[in-house]
Amino acid sequence: MSRIQKAFERLNGEGRKALIPFITAGDPSADLTVPLMHALVEAGADVIELGVPFSDPMADGPTIQRASERALARGMTLRKVLQLVTTFRTVDDKTPVVLMGYANPIEAMGLQRFAEKAAQSGVDGVLVVDYPPEEAESFGTAMKAQGMDPIFLIAPTSSAERIAQVAQIASGYVYYVSLAGVTGSGALNVNAVAERLPAIRQKTGLPVGVGFGIRDAATAKRIAVFADAVVVGSRIIEEIEKSTAETACANVKALVADIRRGVDEVKK
């Protein structure tokens, strides 16, 4: 059983919902990434989404763009991201790590080589933002051959056919993007998200994570009522931006712990 599957089964047994924080690898520096990952776990993260920086993050808003630029300016690469995961795994063998990024750095490394190296490093799932199901056949196969989960997005604009297509190829969990926009946008309509979930559950038995625009414990709680996992990204990056190298881990831990409390107010 994969780490991701195990994590969701454990939560299910405990009657709790998952919290999935996102940070960009190498932001603000490579040295801080692994300590930040441990801080996220201490604050109650069930899965960590680790952003792989890319020069042209077309689906990201200004906050994650800045994180990418900071990381790239300090020389972060996909190769180094995998090394960071290896380091993280020497201490934490339990928390699933999902890489989230764009296709080009992976294709530059070579899909097969990437799949092998990622699995060796202890990566559990990969979400390639610009690999929709129709372009992701070889990606899905390569991931599954290495025991990793290919994670896919579902959007408010996804048709029933497209949701079914995602369900065919996805494993681990599916990620419902709660608004039509880029990461970090403001307007999240919780009721509209709630209304869309049954259509997704009809097509897939995978856990459904919801993200984009979740910024605080109260919203996280409202989402956790109907979602299996709550994904929080830009708000955490902002916290890192506001912090110094010395305070980043503590500040992020406090923020994520607070959101965790919100999520845990929901019992299955």
Binding site: A103, V129, P132, E135, L153, I154, A155, P156, V177
Partner: peptide
């Protein structure tokens, strides 16, 4: 091809 995030498919 169509290498975009799901949000653009609609």
């Amino acid at each position: 091809g169509v290498f975009v995030a799901e949000t653009l498919f609609g």
